[in-house]
């Protein structure tokens, strides 16, 4: 599936929720289901700065596609990462670099997008894209 198709799928899912509580409960559940990152990657250098909670992201290149694993010590943050990983996982670096992230706004999580917000959703997206940029150079 393309990044855009996955984003549309997520937008559809979120459109069924009536209020913030259902939206957040869903994210919390996603967070609980997120496959935990391998402990060896939970290193200081894999921590994304700018988050009030700790977020670790690890990326590997397999068949020219990036595989992300991540974890956080806060569950809502984990839910947000779970959504991001679902969007960006198993995609070509170039598609990740070019991806638009407007869908965050459309699923009612705009408040998390503010660069000053302590959870650092902006930093997470930036970090995923940085990995993509780094791996893009390897493919060439």
């Amino acid at each position: 599936m393309t990044i855009e198709a996955i984003q549309n799928e997520i937008i559809d899912e979120f459109s069924m929720f009536e209020d913030w509580e259902e939206r957040y409960q869903y994210m919390i559940d996603l967070g609980k289901d997120l496959p935990i990152i391998n402990d060896q990657y939970k290193t200081e250098s894999n921590i994304i700065k700018g988050c009030q909670s700790k977020v670790w992201v690890h990326a590997e290149l397999n068949d020219d596609k990036i595989e992300f694993t991540a974890d956080s010590d806060a569950i809502i943050t984990k839910g947000i990462i779970a959504i991001l990983i679902r969007v960006f996982n198993d995609q070509h670096p170039k598609d990740i670099i070019d991806a638009n992230t407007d869908f965050i706004d459309k699923i009612g999580l705009k408040e998390h997008l503010s660069p000053t917000r302590a959870n650092g959703l902006v930093s997470m997206i930036k970090q995923l894209k940085l990995y993509a940029i780094a791996y893009q150079t390897q493919i060439k």
């Binding site: 913030w20 509580e21 919390i28 009030q52 909670s53 806060a74 569950i75 809502i76 943050t77 302590a118």
Partner: peptide, 21 residues
């Protein structure tokens, strides 16, 4: 067993301003 940041986020949704961190 719950991160303060998570609690603060839910409280904000309820109109309650606390500090977390």
């Amino acid at each position: 067993g719950i991160h303060p940041y998570d609690v603060g986020t839910i409280l904000d949704k309820l109109g309650i301003a606390v500090r977390t961190g």
